[in-house]
């Protein structure tokens, strides 16, 4: 049986590093280039407001800083979920995953609110270059968070139905890495876009 467990554990290469973790870090390395491109497009066009509203006219710093707190706390709960999974304690893994997903959903809810508010204040998608690049950057990040939330909720269902092939703790850890990456991208976005006025 031991050999069976090993087989269904993480496929380790000859160097003892887990394949999927190395794959995940490579993927995160290339995602830096993707978000780097979007952030530099925004930095290039943040001054081009044309006839539309300027950044500081529409940004609501208190609200956005609260959403940054929320995403930071969701990173904490994610780490707790990963360490619970490492200890094979299914109950708290499921609990912390659900809390992380709910906090993520709150963050995205806040963003949907922010976009609707900006739209009503006159910042349409094609109003100005600032608008287009802001919506694409934060929209891309929002989509990544939403995908993360769906993965978290689905992971909760899969853990309860015991449907996860391979090692359960490693799957939770991979989704954890993805979630933390989305959080550190928001750390960079929050500082460069919201806090540094043009």
């Amino acid at each position: 049986m031991a050999e069976l467990v090993q087989e269904h554990g993480a496929q380790h290469g000859s160097t003892g590093i887990s394949n999927i973790k190395l794959g995940m870090w490579l993927f995160l390395g290339s995602e830096c280039l993707l978000f780097g491109g979007l952030i530099s497009t925004y930095m290039l066009y943040r001054g081009r407001v044309g006839e539309g509203p300027t950044p500081m006219q529409v940004f609501d710093i208190p609200f956005t800083s609260v959403s940054s707190f929320v995403l930071l706390m969701s990173s904490l709960t994610m780490v707790l979920a990963v360490s619970a999974a490492a200890k094979a304690d299914d109950r708290s893994t499921v609990l912390w995953l659900t809390v992380t997903a709910l906090l993520g959903a709150t963050f995205v809810g806040g963003q949907v609110y922010e976009f609707t508010a900006f739209y009503n204040e006159g910042l349409g998608f094609s109003t100005s270059l600032f608008a287009s690049s802001f919506y694409v950057l934060t929209g891309f990040h929002g989509v990544h968070v939403t995908v993360g939330i769906i993965m978290l909720f689905a992971l909760v269902a899969m853990v309860r139905r015991n449907r996860i092939p391979g090692s359960k703790s490693e799957t939770v850890e991979m989704i954890g890495l993805y979630w933390h990456f989305v959080d550190i991208v928001w750390i960079v976005i929050f500082t460069l876009i919201y806090l540094i006025p043009v």
Partner: peptide, 9 residues
């Protein structure tokens, strides 16, 4: 791997 991608970006 990660920092290579980051610093290259």
């Amino acid at each position: 791997m990660f920092y290579a991608g980051l610093f290259l970006a």
